[in-house]
Design a protein around this nucleic acid. Structure first.
Length: 826
RNA sequence: GCCAGAGUGGCGGAAUCGGUAGACGCGGCGGAUUCAAAAUCCGCUUCCCGCAAGGGAUUGGGGGUUCGAGUCCCCCCUCUGGCACCA
């Protein structure tokens, strides 16, 4: 029994140590950023989570561990590090829970936040908890409302009648995020479009700047591409087509305006198409075709978005009975109504050029409309225009004054011609639409807006902020599509602080994106009651140096935040035009079965269980050791055995069988010193490069070298080893540091430097090939020359035997790298 | 369909200014220790042939460049993510 006891005494047991250090870190607030603004700064940020009732899953700590390692590493490297955490706590789950149980969302949220914080602290993350923010805290959303006032003042917020997602079965409006494939995410009920007065933010006014700003960002290319794609900037021309025999409301001849990116192909426009929802459809339809068009409009309206796009590729349409004049050819061409033209893009109408556009070609083929070739393709093997559209470049034909001109040149020429003759002008359109900013929800930021009896809208003065959410008895939707706030008459009916008149409050609330648009700024100065952030602190800390989060936010959150940031920049609140410098998306962690983790599959891993069984340090190491941060990879709990064993072996280098802490005062062996230098060098480089998996494997190799030597840790390396380990396994490192006799916590202790002289080996091994196949490996002194290398190769018996079987045609000798004999048979 | 990324042992992955493929770890097998088990320690572990020495094959598939290709070029296949009639 004694042996068992002894083994247990010396064994690595993280459970007690880890909790002890977590308490100490909290009580000493040792990770707080320094007030000294002359130090070099490093702002490392996680996308803050929505504190769900389910708690953390293993995907959260993946990126949190990565940023924690960086934060800890940078502290050792002499940076003043800001590493905060907070909560994106408005949102639907808490409200839906309130609907079911009557528990106020604030209560649910507070409980979930406590649980999340506890879980994060149990993993030993070095967040500065004194800066914690919560988007649902009135002292926080006061500033969200304040930013809205800025948007409103600048004319970037406006009201418009917009379709919303109305779910008749649930009697409520749903957010876009709650609608999946045209059905409600919860319950799978049908969702229809219904117009309602909404608050919009004019993000389109910033489209060009949001696009240009991407160029200089150190972001993954695919994220930038997604944003570029989302903004979807197209350069072309708007062209007016006179509608034959139709006048507008003012009695003038009616023009049908289209947008095209291919003005060069105007001579090939053989028909036109208007979207079913086109504003002027009534004038553009002949009396004979009116019934058919009305039917078509009704059919289009009932189709879901999905049917109209992905699944319904087969083109449909009806002729309007009207004709327009092609300004280039002077010909009468028919106007059709078809749902392959979208009302929300461009002018809601197109000129159709079947020879140069696949969709137009398909439509023209189906309805037997003329196809006129106006471009000779650059590819001589391209099928004829009657068979397929050619969307590429070429030389113009059948195009009057453009004949013989290239596509690029023709675009400019035609645009100039249009302007000269008053038929059109150059134009730019984007796919990006203005941001629908209001939600018919309780659990969100109230708008600081007052509706007057005359229909005008005024803002709540800054001094009256925040406009807080009222207590309500019921969270049930009103059934009219209005927010639950609409029935709280005490709150809705108030007095205008400026005029003293009775006014009504806006009852819609802001979407969840609002609070997350600027939280990174509040961390800089979270308790400032006078300002959103002090200019001095903002100038010092911004921009964020490293921002890590899920790729699901590649467009929306990151685009909205950039938009608000630019507005704040214009308002002089911030000093940088972009908020986030380097951005990274962590990969997804799949379940052990290789499938996405989900409750229904039953493959969800709870970090708490892992910490209980293996310890927080082993858990952190495993998450980082699984593979590159950005890769998607499956979880394997057995993998934690490996990182736990590594920590146990490291611990055993300091602790003998009796459980005594002992380091060796003997000088370290040459092998140990060299191994240490190589390890420290690699860990330094790899950590800086966020290549955590290879840094960990280097540390493992080092511990294996010492273990194999059978030595205890040499004192000359012991403390430096603890510092190197700290970013990765902070609890064990702190324990080692303390037992080595230090009273100072590791947090800000300097990073050790590798002895460069030990990084150079005396000898190098050089592989010897015969005809490209490795036959042996030579151990040669560092700095040998090509002749010595070749001689050594020829001296090798095995190599010599192979060489003698033929004639040496060539010798490739690269000292220190390779020796290759090219031998011809015979 | 378009855009982006990726295909390497039983598994996670390592190695890309072209130069020893499979570091490190999991799992597995064998051994030590133990009354026994767990834990720990030592050894082996890409595949095929061979008692061995050794030989052959091998980085999704097929071509090519090169003394030499996981890495560069061309064609193809598969997977993942995003967009999806945006004129």
């Amino acid at each position: 029994m004694t042996t068992t006891k002894e083994t247990r005494l010396g064994a690595y047991d993280p459970s007690a140590q880890e909790v002890r250090w977590q308490k100490r870190w909290l009580s000493e607030d040792c990770y707080a950023a320094k007030a000294d603004l002359s130090l070099p700064k490093y702002y490392v940020l996680d996308m803050f989570p929505y504190p769900s009732g389910a708690g953390l899953h293993v995907g959260h700590p993946l990126s949190y561990t990565a940023t924690d390692i960086l934060a800890r590493f940078k502290r050792h490297r002499g940076f003043n590090v800001l590493h905060p955490m907070g909560w994106d706590a408005f949102g639907l789950p808490a409200e839906q829970y309130a609907l079911k149980t009557g528990v106020h969302p604030a209560k649910t949220t507070a409980a979930n936040v406590d649980n999340f914080r506890r879980q994060l602290q149990a993993l030993g993350f070095s967040y500065e908890w004194g800066r914690e923010v919560n988007t649902t805290d009135p002292s926080y959303y006061r500033w969200t409302q304040w930013i809205f006032l800025k948007l409103f003042e600048k004319g970037l917020a406006y009201q418009a009648e917009m379709p919303v997602n109305w779910c008749p079965a649930m009697g409520t409006v749903l957010a876009n995020e709650e609608v999946v494939d045209g059905k409600s995410e919860v319950g799978g009920h049908e969702v229809i479009r219904r117009p309602m007065k909404q608050w919009m933010l004019k993000i389109t006014a910033y489209a060009d700047r949001l696009l240009e700003g991407l160029d200089d960002l150190a972001w993954p290319e695919h994220v930038k591409d997604m944003q570029r794609n989302w903004i979807g900037r197209s350069v072309g021309a708007e062209i007016d087509f006179a509608v034959d025999g139709v006048t507008d409301a003012a009695g003038e001849p009616l023009n049908l305006r289209v947008f095209t990116t291919r003005p060069d192909t105007l001579f090939g426009a053989t028909y036109m198409v208007i979207a079913p929802e086109h504003k002027e459809w009534e004038r553009l339809v002949s009396p004979e075709q009116r019934a058919a068009c009305e039917d078509y409009r009704a059919a289009a309206e009932s189709k879901s978005d999905l049917e109209r796009t992905a699944l319904q590729r087969d083109k449909t349409g009806v002729p309007t009975g009207r004709f327009a004049i092609n300004p280039a050819t002077g010909e009468r061409i028919p106007i059709w109504m078809a749902d392959y033209v979208m009302v929300g893009y461009g002018t809601g109408a197109i000129m159709a050029v079947p020879c140069g556009d696949e969709r137009d070609h398909e439509f023209a083929s189906k309805f037997e409309l003329p196809i006129v070739q106006v471009v000779t393709p650059t590819d001589p093997d391209a099928p004829p225009a009657a068979e397929a559209a050619w969307t590429g470049a070429g030389t113009m034909v059948n195009s009057g004054f453009l004949d013989g001109t290239s596509t690029a040149e023709s675009k400019a020429k035609m645009t100039a011609w249009l302007e000269e003759h008053g038929h059109g002008h150059a134009a730019v359109h984007t796919k990006l639409r203005d941001w629908l900013f209001s939600r018919q929800r309780y659990w969100g930021e109230p708008f600081p807006l007052l509706h007057h009896e005359d229909g005008s809208v005024s803002t709540v003065p800054e001094s009256e902020l925040p406009v807080t959410l009222p207590e309500v008895d019921k969270y049930e939707p009103t059934g009219t599509g209005e927010s639950p706030l609409a029935v709280v008459s005490d709150w809705v009916n108030t007095t205008d602080p400026v005029s003293g008149e009775p006014v009504k409050r806006e009852t819609h609330t802001m979407p969840q994106w609002a609070g997350s648009c600027w939280y990174y700024l509040r961390y800089l100065d979270p308790h400032n009651e006078q300002q959103l952030v002090s200019p001095e602190l903002e100038k010092y800390w911004m921009p964020v140096d490293l921002y890590i989060g899920g790729s699901e936010h590649a467009v929306l959150h990151l685009l909205y935040a950039r938009f608000w940031h630019k507005v704040l920049f214009d308002a002089g609140v911030v000093s940088t035009s972009e908020p986030f410098g380097k951005l990274l998306n962590q990969g997804m962690i799949l379940g052990e079965d290789g499938e996405k983790m989900s409750k229904s599959r039953g493959n969800v891993i709870n970090p708490d269980d892992m910490v209980t069984k293996y310890g927080a340090d082993a858990f952190r190491l495993y998450e980082m050791f699984m593979g590159p941060l950005t890769a998607t990879k499956p979880w394997q709990t057995s993998g934690l055995n490996g990182t736990h064993r590594f920590l146990a072996r490291a611990w055993r280098l300091f602790v003998n069988d009796d459980g005594d802490f002992v380091v060796s005062d003997e000088p370290a062996s040459d092998t140990a010193r060299r191994a240490w230098a190589a390890t420290l060098d690699k860990v330094t480089v790899d950590t800086e490069a966020l290549s955590f998996n290879t840094a960990i494997s280097a540390m493992m190799e080092f511990v294996n070298v010492l273990t194999k030597e059978g030595s205890t840790m040499p004192r000359e390396l012991a403390h430096d080893f603890a510092v190197m380990l700290e970013p990765y396994a902070p609890h064990l490192a702190e324990e080692l540091n303390a037992r080595l006799g230090s009273d100072e916590l590791l947090a800000w202790q300097p990073w050790p430097e590798a002895d460069a002289s030990l990084l150079v080996a005396d000898t190098v091994s050089v592989p010897v090939q015969v005809n490209g196949k490795v036959r042996t490996v030579l151990e040669l002194p560092e700095g040998h020359d090509a002749a010595a290398l070749e001689a050594a190769g020829r001296a090798d018996a095995g190599v010599a035997r192979l060489i003698e079987q033929g004639t040496v045609k060539k010798v490739v000798a690269v000292p220190g790298r390779i020796l290759n004999f090219v031998v011809a048979a015979g």
